[in-house]
Design a protein around this nucleic acid. Structure first.
Lengths: 176, 176
DNA sequence: CACTATGGTTCAGTGACCAGACCGAATGGT
DNA sequence: ACCATTCGGTCTGGTCACTGAACCATAGTG
């Protein structure tokens, strides 16, 4: 989005937030990172984002303290969400809910989120109806919902996510 | 943002949401509309957005069913948020909270939100601690917080909002 | 009648984003 | 030893979104 300078919006926490995560692709990248996607090529395959753009976004997110870059194996890199990124989950979840409500898939919800300790799905506000808290991503599990059939993606990450439940923040797919 | 086509993200409610509200300026415009800013010139003064961009965003939002355009007086127009825009409040609020947390103003929170029927401030998840619901914007009142001093804007809308409490969705400023 | 407020449109310039080619390092296969 | 492939990028040239500034039509105001 390149809001770049928004000094005039000093009263505005929303402008501050959007300067960091409001650019094109950024929230999609972060959502996938919170789901457990960690590698450049996985993000690339799943989002169909231009390589240069992904590289640019990832380094900006590392710079902003939302992701941590970590060598992995030999000449491989991993991007892990920091607490700052994890704290963004309520906002991302709220946007997902809005999208599900006003742009529903034919069959229904595309994806469901369950609070693992309580074994209950969270409600539209992201709250677990049993323990009455808004769980952090680390306590959530996602699984395909009735509307997941509209997903025609065939990259490994999407296939794995559509196969069954998956704990957030844990790697979706591991080659070894 | 011009996400334009994202057919490949069919599994993804977030992509659907961002196609509609993810472009530059859009969420800032909608936040102001939910606060009660209704007129072209008010938005223009408060956001420092190029006129052409504001006109383009407003007509796109009307087209998308988030705002309703209504003649007002003579040769004046008003933009009113629809239910679809009101439903976006939890997401906007969550982003504001994240911004307040990770990019705080020197004095503290810039703005506070109170659930009027219960006379209690909502918590970080947007929930009223008394009635235990997530109130819609229509039941909220906002007032400047301890960090509001960092706001140096001098347009009429910002001045009015910094003066005292204001009920969301009601006009912030009225010339007559 | 001049002057201002409102709600725009038009236009040229800039910069963000795009697809596609290329690249070096580390394996894997034979 | 060789080639192919995977991974995580960079480079390049083109397009499109966004920008500031000027312009404009209508209605009301002094």
């Amino acid at each position: 989005m390149a809001l770049g300078r928004l000094y005039e919006h000093q009263d505005c926490a929303l402008a501050r937030a959007l300067e960091e995560v409001g650019e094109r692709w950024t929230l999609l990248v972060l959502r996938d990172c919170l789901l457990g996607v960690r590698r450049f090529s996985e993000l690339r395959d799943r989002l169909d984002i231009p390589r240069a753009m992904l590289a640019s976004r990832l380094s900006a997110l590392v710079e902003a303290g939302l992701l941590e870059r970590r060598p992995y194996g030999a000449a491989r890199e991993e991007y892990l969400p920091t607490d700052k990124a994890v704290a963004l989950w309520p906002a991302i979840h709220a946007l997902i809910e809005w999208g599900e409500r006003f742009h529903p898939a034919p069959g229904g919800r595309r994806r469901l989120y369950r609070h693992v300790p309580c074994d209950r799905d969270v409600d539209r506000t992201g709250r677990c109806p049993r323990c009455d808290t808004v769980p952090a991503p680390g306590e959530l599990e996602t699984r395909p919902g009735p509307g997941a059939d509209s997903n025609r993606r065939e990259d490994r990450v999407s296939l794995a996510l559509n196969e069954g439940p998956h704990r957030l923040l844990t790697p979706v797919y591991r080659t070894r």
